[in-house]
């Protein structure tokens, strides 16, 4: 029963979603919307599991004084400060997301700079990876290189200064060959998703129960 009940739950819930898609009338019409809300609620609870796992791991690191334990302390302090600020803001403003709350102040001056700088840092690593990988060794690699260069140059003002048609060529690449290949890939992905979903729904694929 420990396996049969979950399989039945999966089958019934997925069937309800599919039926509600094809019969958009009461009581099925609202089922998809309701299920999505329920999904969000359950996923919300899983956040606790993830946070617990993270904090537990770093707490153990501090407790056992493992290498770089001080960094784990920074992580836990950062976490605690955000949770405390969020809770206080919630009591004070009704929601932690209020623009004047201390929680949003911390978000704007801690998370936003950290996040955007982390992604900005990637531009340097992408450049160095491209230098190593983008050698025009064959036709495929040459095409990749030329297209990337045209798209990059076509999207900055200097591209227009070099050749006034660069932006139009970049636009054409994005709209025609890029879109065609992306469309083919998307069709393949959606067919794959349907096949895998049907396997899960019918209980053929059960790896999620292990």
């Amino acid at each position: 029963m420990r396996r049969e009940i979950p399989l039945a739950i999966t089958f019934i819930t997925s069937l309800i979603i599919i039926v509600s898609f094809f019969i958009p009338h009461a009581p099925f019409g609202t089922m998809q919307e309701v299920s999505l809300k329920w999904y969000a609620i359950i996923a919300g609870f899983t956040m606790l599991l993830g946070v617990d796992s993270l904090i537990h791991m770093h707490y153990q690191k501090i407790k056992r004084k493992k290498s770089d334990w001080a960094h784990s302390l920074v992580l836990i302090v950062g976490f605690a400060v955000f949770v405390i600020a969020g809770t206080i803001s919630g009591f004070r403003y009704g929601s932690a997301m209020d623009i004047n709350s201390s929680f949003m102040y911390l978000y704007n001056y801690v998370i936003i700079p950290l996040q955007s700088t982390m992604f900005a840092l990637l531009s340097f690593f992408i450049a160095s990876a491209a230098y190593r990988a983008f050698r025009a060794r064959n036709l495929d690699a040459t095409l990749l290189l030329i297209t990337a260069v045209i798209v990059m140059i076509g999207r900055v003002p200097i591209g227009y200064q070099i050749w006034h048609n660069f932006p139009a060529v970049a636009e054409w690449i994005m709209a025609i060959p890029q879109m065609a290949a992306k469309r083919g890939i998307l069709i393949g992905i959606s067919l794959g998703m349907i096949a895998v979903s049907l396997r899960i729904m019918l209980g053929i694929e059960r790896s999620y129960l292990s």
Binding site: I41, G50, D68, L75, F82, A96, L114
Partner: peptide, 29 residues
């Protein structure tokens, strides 16, 4: 860098926890 990196992970976890509570659990449940 390590300090900023760990701070990023910790604060993001804290942010997501509060975000989930105030934008999902509270208004939907």
């Amino acid at each position: 860098y390590k300090l900023a990196e760990h701070l990023y992970v910790g604060t993001s976890a804290g942010y997501m926890l509060i975000y989930t509570y105030f934008l999902t659990i509270k208004p939907m449940l």
